[in-house]
Nucleic acid binder design. Structure first.
Lengths: 241, 241
DNA sequence: CCAAAAGTGTTGGGACTACACCCATGA
DNA sequence: TCATGGGTGTAGTCCCAACACTTTTGG
C-alpha cells in the first residue's frame, strides 16, 4: 500500500522496438529493390484486447525488477533474444492508449545482429515475426506511434554514435556498412567520401580476410574496434556521419 | 483491477528538473564571478521519507491524466509555474530508489524565463527555492542523478535546437545570448564568430530598441522569430551552435 | 572476356577559427 | 575624459562535396 497516496494507480509496462537488418533474398524480385531492409520484431497477441493483432514485445513491470531488467526479461521471454543493445526510448502515458484501463509504458529500443540471431529468434517464439519497417501490419495500442519515435531516435543516434555495428555481423565490408547507413537514414551516400570518413576515424580494424562466395572481386572485411573508440572518445573525439 | 496481471504493481510519479537562468547581483562579489548562473528549483520536503531535505517538484500520476499533464499539474501546484517549455527526460526505475516502496518516476525538465517568473515562483511556494546548479544541497531519493541527466540533456539540446531562448527575456542582447551559451555549455565562445553565426541563421529579428539603464553604450535588442525558424526547419535547415 | 562490385585522388568552395581595434554612452 | 562593454572584417585552414576510372574475381 502506498504511504502517501490514496488514489487509483496507473499500471506500468515496458515495450521493446527491436530493430534488425536483413539482406534481401539473393534473387532480387525487382532490379531496384534495396539490398538491405530494416525490420522490426512483432508478436501476435493471443489475448484481448487486440487479440490476433500484432504488437511490440513487452509486458508488466514487476515490483522486484528495474525497468531495464523488465525490458530484458520480456524480450527474453517473448522472443528468446538476450544480450543485445537495449536503450530506453521514451515513456508513453496518454490516458486512453489502452482501451480497458490505464497503462503507462516505458518504451525501449533494441538493436539485434540478425546474422547471429535469425535462427534463434525465429524458433523460440512461434508467434514472433520480423516485418520490414515499410510494410508493418496494423499494430495494437499506440504501438505505431512508439515505432515512429523509435525510428526517429535510431536515425538520429546512428549519426552521432557508432551503434550501427550492432546491426551488422562482427566482420563486415565497407559496402555493407555504407548500405546500413543508407538504409536506415533513407539517403544515398558517396562511396569514396564515406570510406574516407569512416577509415579516417580510426575505429575500424582491417582484417586479413575477404568476403566469401561472391561472384566478383571479394571485399576486405573489417571489424569495429570498440576499445579504440572509447579511448578516442575520452580525448574528445566525436563520431559523426 | 488489472485484467492480465496478478502481481504487485510499482507506483508511478513524475518529477521535474526546472532550469532557470539568473543574472548575478549587480555588485559582483568577485571580479571573475560569472555574470549568469544556471539554477534549478527545489522543494523542501515536509513529509517522510527525506523530510526536511530538498527534492525535485513532483508527485504521483493520477489515473485520469497523461504523464505530461501530471508533470504540468505538479509544477503548478508545487511552484506556481505554468506554461513553460516542458519535455520528458527519462524514466528512472531502479528498485530501491525509494527506500519504502517501489516507485518509478518519469522525469521531465522545464525551462523557465526567470525575468518573467521570478516573483511568482518565489511567492507561490514558500518551500520552493532556486539553487545555483553548482551549489545544490543534498537531494532526496536519486534526484541528484536525475539532475545530472537533465543537465547533460540540456547541454546537448541547446546545441542543436533553439531552446535557449526559453531561458531569456523576450527581448535580449546578443551578449546575453552568448553568455547563456557560455554558462550552460561551460565553454567560452568567440564574440565575433558567435554573432556572425547566429545572425546568419536568420532566426533573430533586430528590434528598434536598445538596452536601458546601462552605464555604457546600450546594446541592440533582438527577439527570436519562432515562425521563421519553423519555416527554415522545414526546408532542411539545422540549428547548430 | 564479360559482368559485377571493389577500390582509389583531386579539386573547388564554403564554413570555421583566430585575432584587435574603434565606437557609443553614461558617470 | 575615462571606463565599460558594443560592435565590426579579414586571412588562413580545414573539411566536405562532387566526381570517373581501373582493378579484381568468378562465371
Amino acid at each position: 500500500m502506498p504511504y502517501t497516496y490514496e488514489f487509483a494507480r496507473p499500471n506500468l509496462t515496458v515495450d521493446c522496438v527491436v530493430f534488425g537488418l536483413e539482406e534481401e533474398n539473393y534473387r532480387k524480385r525487382s532490379p531496384d529493390e534495396p539490398p538491405l531492409q530494416l525490420k522490426i520484431l512483432l508478436i501476435e497477441r493471443n489475448l484481448p484486447p487486440f487479440k490476433g493483432e500484432w504488437a511490440l514485445p513487452g509486458g508488466f513491470v514487476r515490483v522486484e525488477e528495474s525497468l531495464d531488467q523488465a525490458a530484458r526479461r520480456e524480450l527474453r521471454e517473448e522472443t528468446g533474444i538476450e544480450e543485445v543493445f537495449l536503450e530506453q526510448l521514451y515513456s508513453f502515458g496518454e490516458v486512453n492508449r489502452d482501451p480497458r484501463e490505464r497503462v503507462v509504458t516505458v518504451a525501449y529500443y533494441a538493436l539485434v545482429n540478425l546474422w547471429k540471431y535469425r535462427l534463434q529468434a525465429a524458433t523460440d517464439a512461434s508467434d514472433a515475426r520480423w516485418f520490414p519497417i515499410s510494410q508493418l501490419p496494423p499494430l495494437a495500442f499506440d504501438h505505431d506511434q512508439i515505432v515512429t519515435v523509435a525510428r526517429q531516435r535510431l536515425q538520429g543516434k546512428l549519426r552521432y554514435e557508432p551503434i550501427g555495428f550492432e546491426l551488422l555481423p562482427e566482420k563486415f565490408t565497407l559496402t555493407q556498412l555504407q548500405r546500413l547507413y543508407e538504409t536506415v537514414l533513407a539517403a544515398e551516400l558517396d562511396k569514396r567520401n564515406f570510406r574516407k570518413k569512416i577509415l579516417n576515424m580510426d575505429i575500424l580494424v582491417a582484417l586479413d580476410e575477404v568476403q566469401q562466395d561472391v561472384a566478383h572481386r571479394a571485399a576486405r572485411l573489417y571489424r569495429f574496434d570498440e576499445e579504440k573508440y572509447r579511448q578516442l572518445k575520452e580525448k574528445g573525439f566525436n563520431f559523426q556521419i
